[in-house]
Write a protein that binds this DNA or RNA. Structure first.
Lengths: 205, 205
DNA sequence: AATTAAATCTAACAATAGTTAGAAAATTTT
DNA sequence: AAAATTTTCTAACTATTGTTAGATTTAATT
């Protein structure tokens, strides 16, 4: 009957919806998608499993949203920080900035990103497909940066860019497996990693 | 009654026991531990789930054996190849050799190793614990090699060895996620990766 | 060929999973 | 405060899971 009415319904839904996402991201990152039940997630919030269905229509929808948030967060952070650099920044500066941004997003909002990066295999196919799309977009950015740097002579011609890109992102992402809060700062880790890739490790003797 | 008799019972058991391990490793690596059912594994071999219990006493025992095989395979291969080098080999030679051995083990017996390296979280605690023991042993080898190389001046003093070790192994292991048979050879990937770490990527301009 | 042992199957059990419909409680709006 | 709406709970259903005991088949040994 009445058509224009429910536009900006300030549904207070968003409170526990966010709480559910957080709890689910944490548990997924800890025990995997299949290893986490809706009852586990509900219990972490003093709720019952059935209640989750008021906010999400399925377990799959829940994990899809976590995946999207996790991956987008990395991309957005990296893009923002890199674009904020002066136009004439050196490749190394870009690398350090991107590395720091990537690691910050990865290790701070860690529950979302690690859910996204590990355990592809156990997720429903539709979710995997969506993840690939986002990841490809991100990898293409890196592909472009590295190619431009090599064209300008700031990266040796002899370097295989595919191996480089995958080694870089591989060692960034693997940080998830060993990073412990309080030991080394995210910033130091990023600088250390870029320094290794940039200058190599060979001694002078 | 008769005591010494069943010493080397050439039980023909070993045939389908191995087949079960192979099928399980493949499925685990593809869909994760929790995402693979005993019925899936049996079906892949035209068997029924119950039959698996003639060879293994539980799903946990099955995955534990796969994990042990996968990790030990990497360690054994790497140790064998590195120890076969002449005593006076350079650090870079050691690195290239170790990288190749690691990647070969990782990518050839890939089902076992990738089951072992991904998806820790979903495995039973006892299995995780065992995996950590083996992994620590391996990481300690690398720790030793890198430390000696730095002491001898073959790796810059300024390099943080912890970050280096984890970056190296991280990018090796991440190869699992992108390696495709037929594109780049395992050998080339290993050499490429070591070259990047060894000499860095900085151009001369 | 008969007997023994090895391997698989059948058929079920109990536990747990995602999911759902409707009742109950909590919150917001009037 | 009454009414309407939003949120959570209850309680169940169905499918699937790891697992088991016993019957059955296949292979090895005598």
């Amino acid at each position: 009957m009445d058509m224009a009415r429910n536009k900006a319904k300030k549904t207070k839904t968003n409170k526990s919806r966010g709480a559910i996402l957080d709890a689910a991201a944490f548990l997924f990152s800890q025990h995997g998608y299949k290893g986490t039940t809706l009852r586990d997630i509900a219990a972490a919030l003093d709720m019952k499993a059935g209640s989750i269905y008021y906010h999400f229509s399925s377990k799959e929808e829940l994990v899809l949203e976590i995946l999207t948030i996790g991956l987008s967060n990395i991309i957005d952070t990296v893009v923002r920080d890199v674009e904020a650099l002066p136009k004439n920044s050196s490749t190394k500066e870009v690398l350090v900035t991107a590395a720091k941004a990537h690691l910050f997003a990865l290790l701070e909002k860690g529950d979302y990103t690690s859910t996204s990066i590990r355990n592809y295999g156990q997720m429903p196919e539709a979710v995997q497909k969506e993840g690939l799309v986002i990841r490809d977009k991100y990898e293409n950015m890196w592909r472009k940066w590295l190619q431009q740097a090599q064209d300008k002579g700031e990266i040796k011609k002899s370097i295989n860019l595919k191996v480089l890109r995958l080694s870089l992102l591989g060692s960034f992402n693997r940080t998830l497996a060993w990073y412990k809060k309080g030991e080394m700062s995210v910033s130091d880790i990023a600088e250390s990693q870029v320094e290794i890739f940039w200058s190599g490790i060979a001694g002078d003797k």
